[in-house]
């Protein structure tokens, strides 16, 4: 049997990505597909609406048996990677190294990488027909997809190669003749023995390279086979980011199958007549929202013309979904969807 089908939902922060991912998952599950929804840090109310307690491992919905949901753990990322790919002894040394702790905070690609590795493990487990993945917002969008390559490069030890001229060194080789002037120079600048501690860290990290690079290639393969969807609103900034996804995703994953415009105002508000004797405040209100509906329509048409892509519109909901039925309604109330599962 093939691995599960995967849908990866991307888009700028704050456009409703997680809601769309959850809604699609509920819809597929209610149509009988065994579906897993993987979210990252959902709003409390969205988690409640899904009706599955979100913990580390995916859990099954108490009533809708085909639906499972889980949360991708983005916090303990480096530790997971180190424990998975390094010898126990090296892993212990890694996670207690002062650079390791700082690196966890300072290299966000590691969080995306760990999240991707986890998501792909579920796809490969074949327990589900469909896995819907909500991408982490902190990753800065496209970085979720480039994280595997960047992670390989990092643990592959660019720093270490420069220090040692490319050989995988024993500890003494670090201080070979070629590197000596550099090290003296660096010691002067940084204070003593800092470099040695960096090198130890880099060498330990290097031992995870085979594991990480193998997984990276597998992850990239899954990204290329997955269906990607870009969620946006018609606001200028998210739209620019959506355009970036359309230009860059084909290089690192599959080209987006559709763009989803969330918070869409009714098309018939544009050019709507205002009945006589309407109170001024209400007339002004409609004019304001009409201007907004007008701008939205222009933005949508512009985007569709530029990228020639199927366009799905979801109405602007004034109430958040509160249960799986109102979540499913998010999908039902949208315009027609392309074939997704």
């Amino acid at each position: 049997m093939m691995a599960s089908k995967a849908i990866v939902v991307t888009g700028a922060g704050g456009v409703g990505k997680t809601t769309v991912a959850a809604a699609l998952g509920v819809k597929a599950a209610s149509q009988g597909k065994r579906t897993l929804v993987l979210t990252v840090d959902p709003a409390r109310r969205l988690a409640d609406a899904l009706g599955v307690e979100l913990g580390g491992r995916p859990r099954r919905h108490p009533e809708l048996e085909t639906l499972s949901a889980g949360m991708l753990d983005s916090a303990a990322s480096w530790i997971t990677v180190a424990r998975r790919h390094a010898d126990p002894e090296v892993a212990d040394r890694l996670v207690t190294n002062e650079f390791f702790e700082a690196a966890t905070i300072h290299f966000p690609a590691s969080q995306s990488y760990a999240a991707a590795e986890e998501a792909i493990a579920y796809i490969e487990s074949r327990k589900w027909d469909l896995v819907v993945i909500d991408t982490p917002p902190a990753a800065g969008g496209i970085e979720f997809f480039t994280a595997p390559a960047r992670m390989s490069e990092l643990v592959g030890g660019r720093l270490l190669r420069l220090l040692t001229g490319g050989r995988i060194p024993g500890r003494t080789a670090l201080f070979n003749r070629g590197a000596k002037p550099l090290l003296r120079f660096a010691d002067q600048l940084l204070g003593s023995d800092l470099l040695e501690r960096v090198a130890q860290f880099a060498m330990d990290l290097r031992t995870t390279y085979d594991g990480v690079s193998r997984r990276s290639r597998a992850i990239e393969g899954h990204f290329r086979r997955a269906t990607t969807l870009v969620v946006t609103t018609a606001d200028p900034a998210p739209l620019s980011e959506a355009a970036r996804f359309f230009m860059e995703l084909p290089d690192v994953a599959s080209a987006p199958k559709a763009v989803i415009f969330n918070r869409t105002l009714p098309a018939d508000w544009v050019g709507a007549a205002i009945p006589p004797r309407t109170p001024t405040a209400l007339a002004d209100n409609l004019r304001r929202w009409e201007a907004e509906a007008h701008r939205q329509r222009d933005a949508r048409n512009g985007f569709a013309a530029r990228f020639r892509v199927p366009l799905v519109t979801i109405p602007w909901l004034t109430e958040d979904p509160t249960d799986r039925h109102t979540l499913e309604a998010v999908v039902d109330e949208a315009s027609a969807w392309p074939d997704l599962w």
Binding site: P275, L282, N285, L286
Partner: peptide, 17 residues
């Protein structure tokens, strides 16, 4: 929205939203 009135048709839709 500085009014209590509801309006009709599209005006009402926009006001309620």
């Amino acid at each position: 929205l500085d009014t209590e009135s509801k309006g009709t048709g599209v005006v009402a839709e926009a006001a309620s939203m």
